[in-house]
């Protein structure tokens, strides 16, 4: 019977590690590779911000250099208080990106878990989770986040909580619909017939199959959350003002849009580039993680 097993007899099958296999497929997409390089460069620069432009530059006011255009000394120019925009963009990136990434991860984990539980167990569990979610969603996101920030106070952790609460609802609905579909699949029935319990079925059969959709949604959300956080800053509910933050910078630049567009350009470019790179990586990852497309 061994000769029926497909593949020429004696051929050695090279075992490839899963990570290497995914990387091999990820590399094929030029866009994804570009996004990854861009993101790594940005993260590296932001991580080394203290060496390139110390934090005090980002907050030191120098009214003599108010609205100064880009020059050798201040490569991105200065804002309306004469603060160095380059330093502010770098240090703002720390806050903006870390909040965006962390809020995405927490909302994704929390939302996916709830969605999976709701979709898999159905019936009463589903009703309880989805109806509570309806209550959550009946309050407008922005109002809800504002309420949380006002109630808890504006700082990093509370912003994280507020953004998580605003975004996890998407994941619950997304993952639930995926699970409803996936749990009807025959391989889930087969796993049940093999004696697998609910936890195992959710963790090893349902979530991995829903991963593609979750990853794409997550990467899209990173950029959305960057913008959302800017909105909060704009309303004075983000990080407290002297701290540099991309959204806050955009808001301040608004008043000088006609005379000094560079105030707006650099933080906006930072948001666009970071959002773009994350999206490109997400697309590449989706293709790389899907074993159907293996080639």
């Amino acid at each position: 019977m061994a000769e029926q097993s497909g593949g020429p007899a004696g051929a050695s099958f090279k075992r490839q590690s899963q990570a290497r296999e995914i990387w091999r497929r990820f590399k094929k997409s030029k866009g994804a590779l570009f996004g990854l390089v861009l993101l790594i460069v940005m993260l590296a620069v932001i991580a080394c911000a203290d060496f390139i432009a110390p934090y005090r530059l980002a907050t030191k006011q120098n009214l003599a250099k108010k609205l100064a255009p880009p020059s050798i000394e201040h490569i991105f120019g200065c804002d309306s208080y004469g603060r160095d925009i380059f330093a502010r963009v770098l240090h703002g990136g720390r806050t903006s990106l870390s909040i965006a990434v962390m809020a995405t991860i927490t909302s994704c984990l929390f939302g996916s878990l709830l969605g999976a539980v709701a979709g898999y167990f159905g019936k009463k569990v589903d009703s309880v989770i989805m109806r509570s979610l309806d209550i959550f969603m009946s309050v407008p996101d922005l109002l809800f986040t504002m309420a949380v920030v006002v109630a808890l106070g504006a700082n990093f952790i509370n912003l994280l909580i507020a953004l998580t609460l605003a975004y996890f609802t998407n994941y619950v609905r997304l993952v639930r619909s995926q699970v409803l579909n996936l749990s009807e699949q025959e391989y889930v029935e087969a796993a049940k017939a093999g004696g697998a319990g609910s936890v195992r079925i959710i963790a090893s059969h349902i979530i991995p199959n829903a991963m593609g959709v979750i990853i794409v949604n997550t990467t899209l959300n990173v950029s959305k959350i960057i913008l959302y956080e800017s909105t909060l800053s704009f309303l004075g509910l983000g990080m407290p003002p002297p701290a540099p933050e991309w959204g806050l910078m955009l808001m301040e630049a608004r008043a000088f849009l006609r005379t000094s567009p560079h105030l707006l350009f650099f933080p906006a470019a930072a948001i666009v580039l970071s959002a773009c790179s994350v999206n490109l990586i997400g697309d590449g990852l989706r293709d790389a993680l899907d074993p159907h497309l293996k080639s």
Partner: peptide
């Protein structure tokens, strides 16, 4: 008690 299902195309998890 174990079961063999009708359609092998759908009774295996594609991502495992």
């Amino acid at each position: 008690i174990a079961m063999v299902f009708q359609d092998p195309m759908t009774s295996l998890n594609p991502v495992m």
